[in-house]
């Protein structure tokens, strides 16, 4: 190859590189407007994700003068971190990350609570494993994810069965690792939530030994904000709750569309998503007293187990 050819080739290459990078820059920094921006953190297939994909939420907020930006998170811990640092204004999150964050002194408030997902959360065992009650778990290896709703569910289920937490072998795994471990029989049971439970039940020959029903764990969705933000933006919070409520009603009444939407974003078969959707309802509203009580129970259980170092009083952390 001659030098000139090499030079031209390299030049063209670099030019293409820069061109593509500039295209990427424009893709990220799309045009912005004079609207007030609010940033909402969410996780895949949660109520906020449904509102995001449906699109009505952002439209209605825009009419009220807000530009809504959605930020996706992989897990609750990093979402809490982002909320704390002010990178997001609101966070849609599960029931345990707020408790852990509050105990570490982060000044958060609960803005809204969702409906119970108790039927889709629970303890999975393999069919024909011989484990038929919680008592049978004695001495068995149970996979869970530390500081998530699965952690609380397992603690509470053991407590209700009159067992202590030292009766089983706790195996802390993240969800994808736990799925593999459970599938390969490296653990005897797996505590998780939908869509993982539905997937396991339909594709991995598993059955639910115990669900979150009967007060074991409601595993609700919550929307949180920092105390100072919520105090200054009570109107914004009201709008968000109202519009999310509309989307949740839509979700309850349009299962076919919802299932198509979620199966696409989750990358799961419609069969699995159908099971998940049909055993729960969607709702979003102001913090209810039941929700406050449930959160308090999680806080107390975690404190008693030494998982959090400070006592938390949930009712002091609810937005007015």
């Amino acid at each position: 190859m001659s030098r000139t050819v090499r030079k031209i080739g390299l030049f063209v290459f670099l030019l293409a590189w820069v061109a593509v990078a500039i295209y990427g820059y424009h893709e990220i920094h799309g045009s912005s407007s004079g609207l007030t921006t609010i940033t909402i953190g969410y996780q895949t297939a949660d109520p906020v994700d449904i509102a995001r994909q449906r699109g009505d939420f952002a439209k209605k907020m825009k009419q009220k003068g807000y530009h809504v930006v959605f930020k996706k998170f992989q897990d609750g811990a990093s979402e809490m971190q982002a909320l704390k640092s002010g990178s997001i204004d609101y966070a849609r999150i599960g029931d345990t990350p707020p408790v852990t964050a509050l105990s570490s002194g982060t000044d958060l408030v609960y803005v809204a609570s969702g409906s119970s997902k108790a039927k889709g959360s629970g303890i999975l065992v393999k069919k024909g494993s011989g484990i038929t009650s919680i008592k049978d778990l004695k001495g068995k290896r149970v996979a869970y994810t530390k500081s998530t709703s699965s952690h609380f569910l397992l603690l509470n289920a053991l407590k209700k069965a009159g067992m202590s937490s030292s009766d089983i072998k706790w195996v802390n795994l993240d969800q994808s690792a736990a799925s593999v471990a459970f599938n390969k029989g490296k653990v005897d049971a797996w505590v998780t939530w939908d869509p993982m439970t539905a997937t396991a039940e339909l594709d991995q020959n598993a059955t639910l030994l115990e669900t979150g029903e009967n007060g074991v764990s409601s595993n609700r969705d919550y929307i949180l904000a920092t105390k100072s933000y919520a105090a200054d933006h009570t109107d914004t919070s009201k709008l968000i709750i109202n519009y999310l409520e509309d989307d949740m009603k839509w979700a309850n009444n349009h299962h076919t569309k919802l299932i198509t939407m979620l199966s696409k974003s989750l990358g799961l078969s419609k069969k699995v998503v159908k099971k998940m959707v049909e055993r729960r309802t969607y709702a979003m509203g102001k913090m209810s007293t039941t929700a406050i009580k449930e959160e308090q129970e999680i806080a107390d259980t975690f404190y008693a187990e030494g998982l959090i170092k400070k006592k938390v009083t949930i009712k002091n952390h609810v937005a007015d």
Partner: peptide, 13 residues
């Protein structure tokens, strides 16, 4: 394409 372009932008910067 979109994701590659965005990654390339971040990488280059």
């Amino acid at each position: 394409q979109r994701n590659i372009a965005i990654s390339l932008y971040r990488a280059t910067m």
